[in-house]
């Protein structure tokens, strides 16, 4: 399959150092892809995330 629609690289931790491709806007599937949350394990402690990073939609 030669499709290129999704774009995984921009959220990959190896975005700037990866040597596998220069076409980083065309990768929709990659075995080397790794985001900060690739491993969602039960033992992993909750991350402290700044709410400023996210858009506040509703406040209650």
């Amino acid at each position: 399959m030669n499709s290129t629609g999704l774009n995984l690289c921009q959220s990959c931790v190896y975005l700037h150092s990866c040597v596998l491709t220069l076409q980083k806007e065309k990768v929709w599937s990659c075995s080397e892809y790794e985001s900060n949350t690739t491993e969602l394990s039960e033992t992993k402690p909750p991350k402290k995330v700044s709410s400023k990073k996210r858009k506040l939609v509703v406040s209650i």
Partner: peptide, 26 residues
Amino acid sequence: PILANKKLKIKKPNARNMVENVLEQF
């Protein structure tokens, strides 16, 4: 629609091409 991640600056190139590509192979 109201989207939670509207501010994310992620490019989405060629999404339509992806469907066309699969259809072409088909």
